[in-house]
């Protein structure tokens, strides 16, 4: 049984629940939720905010024939897309959490990894929208270059482990960090580490403050 020690910030779960995360981050959050009961519980509390707001919203009338047309559809057979059981099978076969398994469609070792530096390989999920979503595969003893973030960065460990200024991260753990955090993860066992990393839009700076600030943060 996986022992998860690092979880999401409440603010991240609220963003997930309100549907305001970019696709890659949403897949990452959904993947951790697949493994983590504690975050699942908090996420369902956040969904409750959505439920309460749905009750409180000023309704907008449906088209006059809306009820008739939906009642006519109730007996139609359900279109068969990929069934949930096929996806469950993918998830079991690859050992990956369900949302990620169904997105990748194959096990980690069969992906087309691209070498991006000494001991580091990358697989870009090439999702639409702001930010980036990729898998990193890091060899034992290798450390990822020191970096800071613009906006938020989420990391989910899928294999192996690493350590950085924030602690030790093992399979199932997430690192949930934003602009204020500087860190330099290093793979701390003789097993390689594979993690999913998703970021959101770089912060946009507008107005005078932005023009003043930009030269200093290297945009």
């Amino acid at each position: 049984m996986m022992k998860i020690r690092h979880h999401f910030d409440d603010a991240t779960l609220i963003a997930y629940s309100s549907g305001s995360l970019p696709q890659g981050m949403a897949v990452l959050v959904g993947s951790h939720l697949h493994w983590c009961e504690e975050c699942r519980e908090r996420a369902s509390q956040a969904d409750r905010i959505g439920g309460e707001l749905l009750e409180a919203i000023e309704p907008v009338a449906m088209e006059p024939d809306a009820l008739a047309s939906i009642m006519a559809m109730l007996d139609e057979p359900e279109p068969k897309l990929r069934s949930l059981s096929t996806e469950r099978l993918d998830s079991a076969r690859t050992g990956l959490p369900l949302p990620l398994a169904s997105m990748l469609g194959k096990p980690l070792d069969q992906l087309e990894w691209r070498r991006i530096g000494y001991g580091v390989q990358q697989y870009d999920l090439k999702l639409e929208g702001p930010g980036a979503t990729r898998l990193l595969r890091i060899a034992p003893g290798v450390s990822v270059p020191h970096h800071t973030h613009r906006g938020n960065e989420l990391t989910l460990i899928l294999r192996g482990s690493y350590s950085d200024e924030l602690g030790r991260f093992c399979v199932g753990d997430v690192a949930d960090v934003d602009t204020e955090v500087k860190h330099q993860p290093i793979v701390d066992t003789d097993e390689e580490c594979i993690c999913l990393i998703a970021t959101d839009a770089p912060l946009k700076f507008t107005g005078l403050m932005g023009r003043l600030a930009q030269p200093f943060i290297g945009l």
Partner: peptide, 22 residues
């Protein structure tokens, strides 16, 4: 909460709109 759930705004967008830090 309103900006998150009723307008689907991200944290960065909210920060920018309200002129407060992330």
């Amino acid at each position: 909460l309103f900006l998150s759930y009723y307008e689907g705004k991200s944290h960065s967008e909210i920060a920018e709109q309200l002129g407060i830090p992330l």
